[in-house]
Each structure stands twice: as C-alpha cells, then as structure tokens.
Design a protein around this nucleic acid. Sequence first.
DNA 1: AAAAGAACTGAACTATGGTTCACTCGCTGA
DNA 2: TCAGCGAGTGAACCATAGTTCAGTTCTTTT
Lengths: 226, 226
Amino acid sequence: MAYRKTERVEARLADNRKRILDAARRLVSEGGWSEAQISHVASAAGIATGSVYRYFPSKADLCVEVLSVVSQREVDVLEAIANNAEAAYQTLHVAVSAFVERAMRNRRLAYALIAEPCDREIEEARLVYRHAISKQIMRIVKDGQASGDFRADLDPSIAATVIVGGFMESLIGPLSPLNTDFDRSGSEGPEAVHALAGQIAEVCCAAVAVYPDKIASLDTHQRRHA
Amino acid sequence: MAYRKTERVEARLADNRKRILDAARRLVSEGGWSEAQISHVASAAGIATGSVYRYFPSKADLCVEVLSVVSQREVDVLEAIANNAEAAYQTLHVAVSAFVERAMRNRRLAYALIAEPCDREIEEARLVYRHAISKQIMRIVKDGQASGDFRADLDPSIAATVIVGGFMESLIGPLSPLNTDFDRSGSEGPEAVHALAGQIAEVCCAAVAVYPDKIASLDTHQRRHA
DNA sequence: AAAAGAACTGAACTATGGTTCACTCGCTGA
DNA sequence: TCAGCGAGTGAACCATAGTTCAGTTCTTTT
C-alpha cells in the first residue's frame, strides 16, 4: 500500500543529485558563479528547472555545496601535509606551494572559490573554509615554533592569517580572468607555475622562519633561481 | 540668447555632485554596497532618483568614484610613508600598521572597499587600487633590498603581493560584519587596534627582513608584548 | 515679463533570474 | 492491470533595482 522507494529509484535520485552538483561545478569552473543559474544547471544536468528544487532548497544551498566539496578537498590535502610533519620549514613550503599549484591547475574554479564576487551566503561559506585552511597553516606554524624552526615571538594565529592572505592574494593576479598580465607573459607551463609557487612559498616561509638561511636546506628545484 | 550657466548655478551643480558622492559614501560606510541604491543615495542627497543620472552615467560609475576617492587617499598615505624612507624595516612597519589602523577606524567602509561582495565594475576598480597599494609596498621592499635591510633573493613583486594580501586578509576577520569573533573579544579600543596593527605589521616585516633581530630596534610600543 | 533652455522629478519601464505550482508522468504494491 | 504516490516539468510568477522620459520647475536672457 505505502509507496516505498526501491533501491533502483534511490540510486536514480542519488545520481540526479550528483549530476546536478557536477553540472554546477562544471559550469562554475567554466564561467564562474554567473554561469551557475538554476536553469543552466538544470539543463546541463539533463533535468527541468523545477526539479533542481527537489534536491536543493535554494540556489544558495546548491552553490554552497559546490564550494564545500571542492574546498574541503583542499583542506584535507593541507591537513595531510600538516600531519606529515618533518621539518616545519619544509612542511610550510610544501603546503603553500601545493595549494598554489593545485589552484593553478583549475584556475577559473579556483578564482570563483577564492575571489570572485558572489552573494552573501557563498561568501560566508568561503570564510568558513578560509578559516579551516588558516587553521591547518597555524598548526604548521605552531609545530615550527615548538621545534624552534619558527619565531616564537609571533602570534601563530596572526601569522597564519597573514600567510594565507599572502598566498591567496598572490593567486588572485594569476587566476583572475580580468587580469591579462599573466596570460601575456606566456608563463603558462607547469614549469612556470612551479616556479611561481616556489617563490610564493618562500616569502610565506620567510614570514615565520627564524633564519632565512634555512632556505639553503631546500631542494634547489623548489627555489627561485637567483 | 544662448543660455549660459552662471557661477551660482555652476556652484550648485558642483555641490549637488558632491552631495551625491558624499551620500553614497556615507551609505556605503553604514551598510555596505547594498545600501548604495540609487534611490537611497538620491534621497540621502536630497534630490530625486532621476537627477542622479545628470551627474553620473550609471550606478557603477558612481560607486567606482566613491571607491576611487577613498582608496586614492590610502594610496597617497602609503606613498608619503614610502617616500619618507628611513630604515626600510621601520618604514614597512609603519606603512602596514598605518593602513591597518586607518581601516579599523572606519570598519564598515573598509570592509566594503576591501572585501565585500560587489559587482564586476567595482571589483575591477578595487584591483586597480590594490595594485597601486602593492606598488608602494614594493617600493619599500626594493629600497630595503638595496640597503641590505631586506633579503635580496626574494622577488620584490611577489613579496609585496604577499605582504599586501597578508595584511588585507588579517583585516577581513576584524572588519567583517559577518564575523562576531572580534566584537565578542571586546578588543575594540584604540589600544587593542594598535596592538593588532603592530602584530600584523611585524609578521609582514618578517617576510622580507634579513634578520628577525632587527625587531629589537623598534619602539617597544609598536611591538607585541611577549 | 516672457520665451527658451536647462535641470529636476518620480512613476513607469525594463531586465534579470530565483522560485513556485498546477499538471503530467512513471513507479510501487496489490 | 490499476489506484495512489512521489518525481518531474517548465511556463508563469515575483521581487529587486537600475534606468528612462514626459511633464514640471527653475534660470537665463532679452
């Protein structure tokens, strides 16, 4: 008598939800938030506009979930790096350069998640993940302070915030669709990206390192050639 | 025969324009960009909605001008600090802490200009001024590198970007109307703001300084008490 | 004072895009 | 097979806010 969802239907519903999320993410990573209109997302997912609302209560919820999924992966990556704590300097260097290189691999998406104008609810979610990222960086900073690799006199929370802001800002230029400087310079290759990431990481590390000389112990490949 | 604007009228028109700009700035500094609706601005300026379009071709132009006026003043302040170059470390410290303290004096406005969601045209203007700020910081960094106060092996452009991003990010938390952490902590007084500015500046300086010890030469008041 | 030109007015227009809902379709269970 | 229920549909609805413009008021000039 009672209608009971069969496994098959359950699977189809789950698949629909996933298709909506994937479509939204794809659209955002192609053209930013403005492409993530419900009607676009729906047709990209192969369903009708109204059906989206069977899976997500509002556009904001959908967008926030897109952001969350992608951002959480980055937080996880940083957490893994922070856990695998060897020398703090190297750990911080790897964390920053990994983040930069990963962002550069999907620039449009990274730009949307990091810097693109968006509405309040997305902005709030963005802040949450920025904070989570900052927390991982702070862990590395604290470890380094404990081991004596990093200056103990700096407030680790502020240091972490400055570092996060620093590499985020450094990304905005290269990521921004508005900015043509980076594209013009032809520094598109993975080689150039790697070099850029290394330089950014170096400055970030310097902000907390006890002695700049520490740098000498880094793989030369990761360093800016003088 | 031909109609000729008398001085009196000319003055009134100029005054109207100024009143519109002032009203817009006041509204933005009270409630952010969303308050800067043409109808609001018009009534705040004591004129009709349509009249605004006698002075500004579009809302975007008006908003960009509001942003420009305020941002340019900050750039000018930084330029003056950068010009008055004594020891690079102190110069950079003063530049960063001055920026932070000035922003904290009008938080809502600073938040709108620095971080609040806004439309493309405002965002573009924002990038222009961020770049101008970065340029001034870069001058200080280069001077410091030349004098040997700052590490010569860092790319000054990247270092400046990281520094600017660093203190901007550090501001977002305290400035954000979304964030209640800062308000809760009761750290509202000028004393607390000064301390915060000093800490942020210290981390930024550390990013480029040759030796952290340099800090010892700073006025103790500007430093975080251990 | 009166014609002419400019400024002012604000209600109406418009564009955008999220959200709804009356309806149809397709599963489920008997 | 068929009654009943949830899923799917997409055109219509609505809310917001920027922009326009025909009519009105104020200034200038003769």
